[in-house]
């Protein structure tokens, strides 16, 4: 197995007296979809916020390709190749797909000192990304406001890819989608991994997780209580891990 893209070592997060996350160790590999499961308040959100640079950890360290990193803002995380696609996608409905993908990082050429957009290059680049993702969007000039929820996810993924993200974190990407749209987004998630990206997927839908994930990590009460290869576990075991009925979890919670 190759060296993991990101190693999480003994990460903890405390908010005052409240311990939101304790002693989390995790390896995130390129080309792999890692699903984070857990009940509400299990610590998933806190964990991805640390990865995204939105919260500094209270303890522990993040190591990207062998180098320890410390993020003081989401910008730092983005610069290290980590892109987070939050549920409320930060897309501008009034702008085109291509404009959204490049927003804030436009390609430009300077004429008389004035930066002009390289519209054709941006369009072609986005066209290529959409084709590569097989996103079924024919026209990068279409306004994002005219797209469906699934298509918007695809645009957000394109945006992440275009920022050269090596790790894409997706926070419940299918929560608000219809069935057919959900299928497309799951397929996109797979293709993202096939492209060599590391993907961290947060979901509440266990059957969905089994469909796309290579590995499943379960959080419970601020701890990582289990890690399984998707091929070596089943729906029932995962549910018992989440609820704490599984003997492993019981043993773990008894010793602590």
């Amino acid at each position: 197995m190759t060296e993991p893209f990101l190693v999480v070592r003994n990460i903890a997060k405390r908010f005052g007296a409240l311990t939101a996350l304790a002693n989390v160790d995790l390896e995130i590999r390129s080309g792999e979809v890692l699903a984070l499961l857990g009940d509400n308040g299990a610590g998933k959100s806190t964990f991805i916020k640390i990865l995204a640079g939105a919260h500094p950890p209270s303890d522990g360290e993040l190591v990207i390709e062998g180098n320890p990193v410390a993020f003081s803002s989401p910008k730092d995380a983005a610069a290290s190749g980590i892109a987070t696609i939050f549920q409320e996608l930060a897309l501008s409905e009034n702008l085109s797909i291509a404009e959204n993908v490049f927003l804030g990082r436009e390609l430009k050429r300077s004429i008389l000192g004035i930066p002009f957009l390289k519209r054709k290059e941006m369009r072609q680049r986005v066209d290529g990304l959409l084709k590569e993702l097989d996103a079924h969007i024919s026209d990068p000039e279409a306004p994002v406001g005219s797209l469906s929820g699934g298509q918007r996810q695809a645009v957000a993924i394109c945006r992440a890819l275009n920022l050269n993200a090596r790790l894409v974190i997706m926070d419940e990407p299918t929560a608000a989608l219809a069935v057919a749209e959900t299928r497309k987004v799951l397929a996109l998630t797979r293709r993202l991994a096939a492209r060599g990206c590391a993907v961290v997927l947060i979901s509440h839908n266990i059957s969905e997780v089994f469909e796309v994930a290579d590995r499943i990590v379960v959080f419970r009460r601020g701890r990582k209580v289990a890690e399984r290869l998707a091929a070596e576990t089943d729906h029932e075991e995962v549910v018992s891990l989440i609820t704490g009925a599984h003997p492993d979890v019981r043993a773990l919670e008894k010793t602590n």
Partner: peptide, 28 residues
């Protein structure tokens, strides 16, 4: 017209008009 339709400034202005918060999250 050039500023609005052919420069990053114009895109940023329209993005802010759509949602200042989203524009900020996009790094504008």
């Amino acid at each position: 017209w050039l500023a609005l339709r052919r420069t990053p400034y114009g895109l940023h202005l329209l993005a802010i008009g759509n949602s200042e918060e989203k524009a900020r999250l996009s790094g504008i």
